[in-house]
Amino acid sequence: MEPVILRTEGVTRIFRSGAGEVRALNNVSISVPQRSLTVLRGPSGSGKTTLLNILGGLDLPTSGRAFFQDMEITALSEGQRDRLRGKEMGFVFQSVALMPDMTALENVEYGLRIAGMFSSNNRKMAEKSLKEIGLGKRMRHAAYELSGGEQQRVAIVRGYAHNPKILFADEPTAELDTAMGIQVLNIFKRLISEQGLTIVMTTHDPNILELADRVYTLSDGGLVDGND
């Protein structure tokens, strides 16, 4: 088995608002092996997105810890987390998360820049990846001109273009048709096998669930099958 690249220890996340408390996560411990496709699944409100955010360093738990490789990301400062995230992680959000005025190509280039990559090869790399995902003809269009599915694909490309170690994806195939969804899956699989990417995602898609290496089911902030 591959070494664990990402794990949480007893992570609890409580949101306080004017109305009271919401316990989004309750003492959750998971581990994600390297080069795996790990799926978090559960109904909406189960806390899977919250867990994803904590794993990605976007959010801090109220208690508990999270580790990336051997580094405790929950102990890092915000700036350190930003840097780590920019370089080692990629994100694909559920919402349309592109910069609307940029073209597909520019969006990918933008992501590369944030990751600190300024090579002159950037453009070629971006173009290649976009072609692979079927956006060869559309990559010079502005993001708002693209369809939902096309935008999602751009977001996915942006997510891995900088060769992160982990790709987080929140419902990446939600707006894609079956054929497209399968294509994306193939890309994911290829990324895992050829580039050693680890993918952590949330999804309802049964096709993906079938192929997942590890599935965690969440309900009401806790793991259904208990912690690891």
């Binding site: 990605g56 976007l58 915000e78 700036g79 930003d82 840097r83 780590l84 995230r85 920019g86 370089k87 992680m89 994100f91 959000f93 919402s95 998360a97 592109l98 910069m99 609307p100 992501g111 944030i114 990751a115 942006r158």
Partner: peptide
Amino acid sequence: LQFGISRALGMRK
């Protein structure tokens, strides 16, 4: 939203 995305992608403050 856009600021959030950029930050999420790793942009520092």
